[in-house]
Amino acid sequence: MENQSKIRTQTKTKLVIDVLIFIAFLITMDPHSSGIAVHEWLATAAIAALVAHLLLNWDWIVQITRRFLGKVNTQSRINYILNWLLFIDGTVIMLSGFMISESLLPFLGISLPGNFAWRSWHDLSANLFLILLGLHTALHWIWIVDAFKRFVFRPIGRIFSTRSRKDIAA
């Protein structure tokens, strides 16, 4: 029973963090609307959320890393490779973003030698990240739908059904 409630809390935390990362990503993907300062500070803050995401899925990462060359089903293997690609691509986005930073690093008094290549790498890796995020979402779609049903739609439905019951009683 205690174990079940622990899993339930962990799933809820995962869902909240994932939704926050997703929203942060959508905001940072459009720097012309959010502004360069928001784009850079939010993306840097997202590192903490990404670390939390990895920590919450740590057991899965360790399990698949150990068994990767042995007996693992194809979907887990594809998922694992995709996660590594996401991690590497995310790192390239961060690195190239820092190299062309116009707000965060100047604010911290750091200036880096600029290079035209960093901007194109930043754009390229961000566009690739969008596709990889789509694949990542697709591979976890059942989990996402299930978690939304359990923690978002059902509680909302319960609120409405108790309200209508109260209305009938009144």
Binding site: L26, M29, D30, H32, S33, L130, G134, L135
Partner: peptide
């Protein structure tokens, strides 16, 4: 921009 990015992810999904 927001719809475009969500649209790309939605198509892939």
């Amino acid at each position: 921009g927001f719809i475009k990015n969500i649209g790309i992810i939605a198509v892939v999904v």
